[in-house]
Design a binder for these strands. Sequence first.
DNA 1: TCGTTGTGTCATCAA
DNA 2: ATTTGATGACACAAC
Length: 645
Amino acid sequence: MQIGKKYFTEGLIQLTILLSFIGVRVDVDSYLSGYYPPLTEINLGPSSAYTQTPFHILRDTLDGYGVHPKCPELDYFFASRRLLEEVRTLGSPRFHTQLNAWLVHQVSATDKAEHGPSTSGGTDTDGVLESPGDEARDSNLSESGQEVRRRANPELGQGPCQSGASVTPQEEDEAKVKEEDPVSLTQLAHSSSLEQESLLEGSTALSNPGRCHPPYPTPDIDWSNFLSLTDLDDLDSLVSGRLPDLNTDIAGAISQDVSLHDAMVTSAGMYGESSSGGTEPRTSSQQQRVLLRLDSTGSSDTSPEMALGLAALPFASVCNMTASGTGQGALDDCLDEAVFDQINQLGLEGLETMNNQLLVSLGGIEPHALEDLDSDSGLSLESSSGGPVSPGSSEISSSSSSYCEDECGATGYSSEVESVLSKGITDYSTIWPPSHPNENVWHDHSYASTALFNKAAITLPHKIEEPFSDDACSELEERELSRDELRARAMCIPFSALQIVNMPVEEFMEVLDSYGFSSEQVTLLRDIRRRGKNKLAAQNCRKRKLDAITGLQEEVERLQAQRDRLLRDKQLTAKTMGAVGHQIRQLTRDVLARLRDRSGQPLNPERYTLQCGANGRVVVQRIRQPAVSTSAGNKTDKRKKDKKQ
DNA sequence: TCGTTGTGTCATCAA
DNA sequence: ATTTGATGACACAAC
């Protein structure tokens, strides 16, 4: 079965390659969610804190679940990645997103005419990837999205489970009608409750002048991060299970261009635009177009494949935040390919988490937030990002951790997704690929909100912006501050705990010297730094301890199996030896019975025995002791003789 | 109410 | 001498 799955998966990828050669654009992004679990690549960061056990990063995730570092299956694991790398090199950047759906659709001639010989979407996305700040990218995407939408039928855009999804001209007309129909708004409204929540929260987020301006990662990094066909075993198992569906759905999928990427980008642009409060006004038709596309991709929440469309919503909400934080160029920021991919990683769980977190956080700030300063577990209060205010936060966290399905929850540190998703809105900033090595290991919930200032921490002391003096620091963020954060704020220390912990020691010393802190402030700074580092050390230590326990358990099982095997061998050997001894005694009796002594009498087997010499000669030897004496008696006599000698 | 688990923190040691 | 990582021990919260 494993072999069959392997061949199927590799064959699928090879088919993808071949189709790309003949001009058929293959979108692996959009049509795997129904068949495959969401893939995440754990090298996003924090889990890599356990640098001593690098493969645990994989083992604790979907990627490497069940893959032991010494396991030969890793060869297949990397071989699969290599195959997908080959697909990537074909130049279709559609593969860079989460591999949760797959779609084969023909590139129309108009696409080629408009966007060149390469795949249209690929061209657009290439532009996004290679020049995230390019403003022309926006228009390209819009055009591309329009073209895509023109070929897509919203009613048929139900994912690969739809059969007979070929788009007739009449259907195209209907689609056009729907584009210009205000009902698109209602379609969106009916698309999904989650979407509605996201919309509500997205609009609400406007009121939060979050200074959350997450440092966007470079797209190049994300390209290498996000495209990982890692859990091929799981994928294969699912694919094999859904093979009949695939056979019937591919045909329908060919004529549909339901690109998750395009839909997400465009819809995100819509939200980002709406969040900008009209700073970049757009025509209603454009917005409707956007809505329609969103609807066409994620119009049904009843189909698992439609998680694709929903996946766009977290991105949109984040765009809201970024837009509100910057107030300009929101669309460009939102269209950042890396952001898109990051949100893609979150999937539906991320959406739910964010929605819940938004709802909870918008419900008001807990007045007791500052009362736990002396509590040892004050950090844990913030770690749930909801504290006593949000009893559902633990549920959110658990549901988030279920995203990685397996061992994520075993240790509590294995999943970046868990920690990220449990942190709410501002935590999206923590999933950017950190540029500082220490940021990789920072997956503590306590300083989640302070991750916003990571970049400032890196450039310190040249770029100290006194983050706490910012009036935009909302109550939402205040609630998420850790105990040390609150202490630092109370002591007017212009650094976040994360900054304090992550800055190099030279920089830390320089800060201590150059800012004229009082002794209490210096003590607090040192305590915060020590506690933060020790916290990470404790997490690593516990992780290692669990790993050691797991390793020892495996060792015990292995040794028990070896012991059982040796016992069986021993029993078998004893049995064989007994049989051989019996044969020897029988042969001895036969030989002695055929021999005669001087008087012509047969030799008594009890008085004589056969002795095999070193030269191979067999001689008859008389047993010295009479047969009456027992063997035990013989032994005692021999011992006595030996003693006498 | 009690046990378990996860987490933060402190103390201590070693590099 | 100081910093930092590792780890045992403890306390606390959540379940």
